[in-house]
Design a protein around this nucleic acid. Sequence first.
DNA 1: TGATTGTTTATAAACACAGAT
DNA 2: GGATCTGTGTTTATAAACAAT
Lengths: 492, 492
Amino acid sequence: MPNTQVVIIPPDADIQSIIEALTAKGRECGSNGPNKFILISSGGSSHPTGSAATQQTLQSKDEMSTATKGARAPDCQGGEKNLGQNPDKTVERAVLWPPQVNSMGGQEQEGNSSGEATSSGLDNSLTNIQWLGKMSSDGLGSCTVKQEMEKENQTPVQERIKTEEDSIPATATSSSLWQDSISERPPYSYMAMIQFAINSTEKKRMTLKDIYTWIEDHFPYFRYVAKPGWKNSIRHNLSLHDMFVRETSANGKISFWTIHPDANRYLTLDQVFKPLDAGSPTSPEYSESQQKRHIPELQKNTGGNSSNKTEPQNARRKMKPLLPRVSSYLVPIQFPVSQPLILQSSLKVPQPMAQGASLSGSEALRSSKRVRIAPKVLPSTEEPSSFLPTGPVKEKSHCDERLPPFAPSQSVKENNSQPGEALASFPAALCIKEEKEDSYPDKWLPSLPPVFSIKEEPVQSDEETGLLLPVPCVKREKHFKKKNCLTLLILA
Amino acid sequence: MPNTQVVIIPPDADIQSIIEALTAKGRECGSNGPNKFILISSGGSSHPTGSAATQQTLQSKDEMSTATKGARAPDCQGGEKNLGQNPDKTVERAVLWPPQVNSMGGQEQEGNSSGEATSSGLDNSLTNIQWLGKMSSDGLGSCTVKQEMEKENQTPVQERIKTEEDSIPATATSSSLWQDSISERPPYSYMAMIQFAINSTEKKRMTLKDIYTWIEDHFPYFRYVAKPGWKNSIRHNLSLHDMFVRETSANGKISFWTIHPDANRYLTLDQVFKPLDAGSPTSPEYSESQQKRHIPELQKNTGGNSSNKTEPQNARRKMKPLLPRVSSYLVPIQFPVSQPLILQSSLKVPQPMAQGASLSGSEALRSSKRVRIAPKVLPSTEEPSSFLPTGPVKEKSHCDERLPPFAPSQSVKENNSQPGEALASFPAALCIKEEKEDSYPDKWLPSLPPVFSIKEEPVQSDEETGLLLPVPCVKREKHFKKKNCLTLLILA
DNA sequence: TGATTGTTTATAAACACAGAT
DNA sequence: GGATCTGTGTTTATAAACAAT
Ligand SMILES: [Mg+2]
Ligand SMILES: [Mg+2]
């Protein structure tokens, strides 16, 4: 179906605004844009109805066969006990209208291929794309949605309509908001999203296919606009990072990806949202220190510096500038599962809080359609340890290296912007430490809280007759590379 | 100087063959090729003479300033004590004519920026580009040499003459041999080359700049034809791999890159050469099992498979197919420094031993000008451990995890080609083990032999008043990710 | 045989940071 | 002394080549 676009809307969406948005989009995209729209009302009962079915009409045969075969096929409750303590099973999987914020309370229940139960605790309450509210509104371009699937890494030079960074600097009309949910790439790294996915399940493990599906469900950008290579990147991240450990069911038939307990902060998508009641001065706007990140093209042409003959200006860059590094909303806070409910996770999401808020207009337009690189270590910091008074300290600091077992710790990328900004938004921010490669705590946060303990081997696995083995044989002595980042310790 | 190419020749090169080669090249490249040649005679005294000076004329101003400032500037013996036990200081730094094999015996003495002494032991005797003899002769394309320097990662879309993989399948004339030394990318990964570089020094440490220089000296491909981004890749590898540890001199002024002792196999360039006297049946040709690696383009168009609509055939790939994985010449054998001279390192190099020897002609042409990806783990296998009878074993194997401290061990990429091939070439190959993530020996090969011990702190450092600190504070308990590879243990 | 999954290498890029200019 | 540039270091993203299943 060429020129067709699927728009998923929440049931309570204002129909008038939808019409207006579609009209505006029509003007914006011109004759090249889609002229047929499939409107899907999200919400409702479990997932394989409506939206899922219609989504498949948009997927290529390639992708469809995959989906039908595995993850997205039938209701997939097969053998699932659903150990979740919350009986309320209001499922809301579909993409919400961007400005909307679902009112929480519902648990998510993915129809995953392996029949694994998703965690129904409080670390899993943020189901949908609320992160969009914090995205910049510079999402011009990117008119339509993925329409053909290439062979994964097959150089999708096709007529992927995603307008490239060629003829973009148009007028950033306000109409682009409605489609941000699919056109806007989420500000999280693959590593972060994988953690979100895995930690959304009860047993903190997930098959590759389910990771794909979870990410597509929560970040429709990947389902609709990203190039198929994003799955390659997922696999690459799983293999590359030590924190992701593959375990195999006893019969060796299913591979689950887990997060090494020493590295797992139990990051979940909703944790990246700061509660508004924290009374922090850090809400929407960003300081100039974060805007100083310069667009490389501008920077290069500034001084007539030497040795840059013939300025290859045709360079088609693909990367967007990084998001502001330490902006607190990018910092998922880990609340140890052992002390839940410290703050109701992600109730009121700070509304617009556009990422490029204080960027100059030209800059915002400039960086429009490159692939954003998610901020550095931010969510996963595989080995935070020890800590240190305040501010970015340069050399190693004489600090004890053993943390109180489950003190909520948070890693923040170090930069020279007000450390107080990030700190102020949390109950009791204690120390920041630049964790270079010093402080080699052999086992950081030695073991995991019994709650949600990952390797509860005695607990008979529901669908697979339990008894998982880490693909090799996890000796549980893994050491994780320390990253250059600040660790923000919240002790209260 | 457009249309100019530097050709470095050994002093004993046959002038007649040079003329013929240049003439043949002229025919091969046509009017697009270089029409001016700078012939540089290599060899001779220490390095900043002749070749180095002329090399600079080829470098851009940008690069020149750098070079002049640091590494390649004056003789740079500043403060160097030259602790090498071998008084013979015959320096041979320049590139040799490809088929030539220097007759060993000379030690290399880099004019490195930090004034570090290069190792003059036997693990450093292979100075130049003897690896070329084992490269495939499919190096068509790549007519000329780097002529302008971009800003490192500045998308060198310039008129870098390196003929791309567009109009290549010409006749693989035999004339390309003469320039292989610079046009042919070495078959080693960046990780391997970095190890070669670092291990070529006496103290097993090297500054970044010296690593650049060492690689350029020994693999002129990087000096002359590689895109400037190769230095980015070097830095990327240094950071990425845990085995590379940065240490800082006491005053904090100089950063040295070292190899973590638990991971260092003391690989050197000459070790990748198998002595011919080992009486192995593995010499030049490869079994068909290694040729089965298919060219992707061919593979894609074979079966009229489904779901591949609109075949984006314009895909400009940049990667060459991998080299044969376990071909023994790619497997640098580590000979523990404590038992040197087990075999005279790299005397007679197996001459042609073209990598693509048994490839069909069309295939060899096809894969001509993409960037070759070096075989997987091969040289560095950051944590080999335990072992196992023979052949590729699937699941974990009950094997003891502690190795005899300095038994020469070698990691080989596991594949299903005759394990005996690689084994036969070594004195007593004992066991092969697929080292998945099992067998987590806390400290594999616990400490290092006193000989060439890296952290001889009491030994007053020559130029820097010694006392190095690993940039953070190395606790020496690093664990290295085990790769999926076979460990070949040579116990004899 | 073909697709999926997993591992590893290569390359580009964004950015932090320190020292030099 | 401050702004700027450059080299170095770290991290993320993407493509690719394979291997194994
Ligand atoms: Mg992993
Ligand atoms: Mg490193």
